[in-house]
Nucleic acid binder design. Structure first.
Lengths: 342, 342
DNA sequence: CTGAAAGCGCTAACAA
DNA sequence: TTGTTAGCGCTTTCAG
């Protein structure tokens, strides 16, 4: 029956035998249920220690019908913005009875695989899904399945979710730049259409809208998209800054990319913000250090809120669908300033 | 018995009833064991599909006595070098029957907590422990416990482990710099003594040894330690480069830090490698991009090897203690050059 | 306050 | 080839 030939672990039965009580009693003291005489409790604890016994969580899970863990599916665990959110989640979960397990998704295929047999295979009681919008079909599945799910940073009317208004974020950012007098504003971002980040496209739309409102024509050469990361951002920034008529402001759709822009500006000796304004998005810790102006999307807070919502769902306090917004703030620091005068 | 008031999931028993076979037969087709007539198999599959049945992994785990997952305990999941290693691990595990769950440790307390009730609470069949040297007592515990463990990037004679020779790494690096004619060589690193990284101290010892061999006096002002990360490295580098008698070469104990040094050099207009040689450690992807000379410690490979060793352990192919080394290579790129002549 | 016993959903002897 | 059945280690009802 068991494949391993190792000696069996000590079980609750061993403890019971040693302590000369029933296994029910041992279980009671283990779970700190009331109704065990003080003397008995002590005796049992003593043998537990003596035998160095740890209850088998798998058996417990099978018995109570819950796994006491919640899973988080997240792309790019390596990016600072995701880490920030993860911290928030961990904060909310720390005081709960749930453990957190992380599933990293590196490619769309992996995402689908995870989504498919979510609950059972994952052995989790609840799921947090970050920045990974489900298709309609997948959303239906989530809604049907018995396992509570909350989306963070993606939108679906049938599910519970924490969202930020990326469209508005794009507007706030662009408005800031326009109000500083900029007219040559570039938009530098991840690929606008990926299965992962509809957010980018929304920010772009907000960007467009504000430009239009101010009758500023959109120069196609000022819109540049590419792979994530600081290094790729450098390449893109270089293209922008070596244009015959370079922009006076760059709105980068993540801080990481904005930092890449800053690298290039320094390298090319373009003074920031005198000759070039750079505006990021996220407010990651590095942004503070570099005095980067940015849109704070309260990443940590979104993690806290998402985990709390899941906990509420698990506790039956709320029912899907439900929705919460995280706020967006412009943080004006030292990398944005008035447009240069010609 | 079950706390949830949700309708019970469909079980193997339901399938058996529907298909008019015994649960044993269902189990057999589920596990693709031989000895089921083709017709029966098909019938069972059909009802499985029809009922949309997924076996409960918890029950399976309890029954077979294994969890089919392996855990990895790792500090700093956010640093590129750790990601690199993780990729290697995932590569090895992809073709195995095991899932990987990641436990991140942010502080020593967490580490101890994880180490304490490792196996049971974690519900894993095997553990990979990265860069987290156990105390002797903890090591004894690991050795006693029935759960196979391999250390990656830390050393303990009682356990299975993948190690790199950091002492030698320090020597290789320093030798390179000395051979280029440098005499004023600085050593910039993480805190030399942390519970996480004895490696740093070893590299430092290697550094000292080579200097001594060449009768180069060690200037205390050239040794600087601080918190991890590119940003902190900048602060340290600035201190070094504003010394009255600044070094002509800096050996940074990680690429991330070396990049911080490069930032400062550029900012201060110190030409690299003409006026300053910078040597890193790790060979992370960014190092390639920045043409950073570095010590390649084959991070990815260490992940591959570690996971493979654990698999072998799990399969009973090897027994602890065991040990494997990953190789170290000097990668001379563009940030190290001959010492400037005065 | 304590114990006996019936599950939780699955696997694997063993027997047929 | 298939079915019966005894676990895996725990929780929890129900009786005492």
């Amino acid at each position: 029956m068991r494949l391993r030939d190792t000696p069996p672990n000590t079980t609750i039965r061993d403890v019971a035998k040693h302590a000369k009580v029933s296994i029910a009693t041992v279980s009671r003291v283990l779970n700190e249920s009331s109704g065990v005489r003080e003397g008995t409790r002590e005796k049992v604890w003593a043998t537990i220690e003596e035998l160095n016994f740890t209850p088998n969580p798998i058996a417990r899970q099978l018995s109570i019908g819950r796994t006491l863990t919640i899973g988080i599916i997240q792309p790019y665990i390596t990016l600072p913005s995701y880490i920030e959110r993860l911290r928030g989640v961990q904060h909310s979960l720390a005081s709960s009875e749930y453990d957190l397990v992380i599933f990293n998704v590196d490619n769309p295929g992996q995402k689908d695989a995870y989504f498919k047999d979510l609950s059972r295979k994952m052995r989790v009681d609840g799921m947090l899904i970050v920045s990974l919008p489900p298709t309609n079909e997948q959303a239906d599945n989530f809604a049907d399945t018995r396992i509570p799910t909350v989306l963070i940073d993606s939108e679906n009317p049938k599910l519970c979710r924490i969202v930020a208004d990326d469209y508005e974020g794009g507007r706030i950012a662009t408005r800031h730049l326009v109000e500083l007098g900029h007219r040559k504003i570039a938009f530098l971002s991840d690929f606008l259409d990926t299965p992962f980040h509809p957010a980018m496209r929304l920010r772009y739309l907000g960007f467009q809208e504000v430009l239009a409102q101010h009758q500023i024509p959109l120069n196609p050469a000022y819109v540049i998209e590419g792979s994530r990361g600081r290094i790729n951002a450098r390449t893109m920034a270089k293209k922008l800054l070596t244009l015959d008529d370079p922009p006076t402001a760059i709105f980068a759709s993540s801080d990481t990319q904005a930092l890449g822009v800053l690298d290039v500006a320094q390298e090319m000796n373009v003074k920031v913000p005198e000759r070039l304004s750079v505006l990021g998005y996220d407010n990651i810790p590095d942004a503070v250090y570099n005095n980067l102006s940015t849109i704070d999307q309260n990443l940590y807070d979104s993690g806290v809120k998402g985990a709390q919502m899941l906990l509420d769902l698990l506790g039956g306090l709320i029912e899907p669908p439900c929705k919460q917004q995280v706020s967006l703030n412009l943080l004006r620091r030292k990398t944005t300033g008035p447009a240069p005068i010609f």
